[in-house]
Design a protein around this nucleic acid. Sequence first.
DNA 1: CGCACATTTGAGCAGTTGGTTGAGTCGACT
DNA 2: AGTCGACTCAACCAACTGCTCAAATGTGCG
Lengths: 218, 218
Amino acid sequence: MGATAVAKSGPSGAVARSIREGTRQRIVDAAVQTIKERGFAATSARAIAATGGFNQALVFYHFGSVNDLLVAALDRTSELRMSRYKAAIDPVGTLPELLAVASEAYREDLAGGHIKVLAELIAGASAVPELKAQIAGRMEPWITLTEEAVERVIAPSALAPLVPPRDLAFAIVSLYLGAAMLTHLTDDPAPAESLFRTGTKVGGLLELVTLSPASDPG
Amino acid sequence: MGATAVAKSGPSGAVARSIREGTRQRIVDAAVQTIKERGFAATSARAIAATGGFNQALVFYHFGSVNDLLVAALDRTSELRMSRYKAAIDPVGTLPELLAVASEAYREDLAGGHIKVLAELIAGASAVPELKAQIAGRMEPWITLTEEAVERVIAPSALAPLVPPRDLAFAIVSLYLGAAMLTHLTDDPAPAESLFRTGTKVGGLLELVTLSPASDPG
DNA sequence: CGCACATTTGAGCAGTTGGTTGAGTCGACT
DNA sequence: AGTCGACTCAACCAACTGCTCAAATGTGCG
């Protein structure tokens, strides 16, 4: 029934699964690269197959539909980047530190085009209703990740009662998405680069100010 | 030669031109609406014609190609929104005021889907190289508008030397784009709404703090 | 080896795309 | 009455889309 032939625990289970998974990985990687290079609207089964050097029917054999493959592609980049961000964010305790490591990780994203995949899929989802819910659901971990980092760093400061971490997280994720779109549109990383520096400076100022809130009560 | 029949100052110039412009307007409006409702990837000549209730050949008669029509559509929404933002921003002189009117105008955008058109075209442009440069060029006025407003409001404060208005403008435009994408993805205006309130509060705090920089020089 | 099954392929399907064409309708102007 | 620009309409094209399928190829096992 289902187009995706399920590995039904055959005799050579282990080997077969590894071959299978290897191919699936190749296909997913080709899909990711195609989205990065050509954008959602140009990412067809044939374009993906051409990128990866395999037959387009293989997409349907392994994933059933292009949409399902795109979701798998999003999961793949998301997973890779999520672990990268977690590792970078985990040890930080202050706002300027957070801004510094977040800037660095984001720099990698811009160069590697990871967030572009996300942005392309979000934009493309409005043309493919089946994708909307799936992609929307996959935004939540990012916002949560950001929220937790923000919360941890902001908790001891005077900012905490004023700025709900959830709002700030939403803003930061939005900023990431928008900045990636603009950067890739113009192929010019300079504005984002400049923004990193400014952001770090402002973060320092904010911390300085909010940690000494008693200076000017009037 | 050119597919777009040029109005060559015929005998009945005025009437013909007004008829012509009226129809062009209808087509452009249909294109804008189609992008809003169905997204870039689903905005074909036939989809636009169906939205506007005319024949798809009319698109090519008046605009020569779908791409040219899409650019015209972007110009139309941009023009409408730009004048709206200018009118709202013009009279303000302080940061909290600016945040308040910008929030209000942006609220309209989210409800009306105007920025979605922009975001869809930016994302779609990477699939259609001919569009990239055209759309990239049309981002500049937005950044400039934001930059000027930011500069005016920030100039008297202690923030000015720390935050280049250009950087802040880039960040704000990015934030607008990203927030619009997320909002339309989830069909939930609540996070953006909450962000407006928080942003206004933080703006007030920033102004309070930066206008009295002498309180804590150490 | 030969068997069974997973994987991969190329050809093909129906449907959609951008864009064109040609014949015909309409209304305003001369 | 006649011209002309604006417009409609249906048909058409080559190229592309998602997807299917039967045939080929591989792979491990007896």
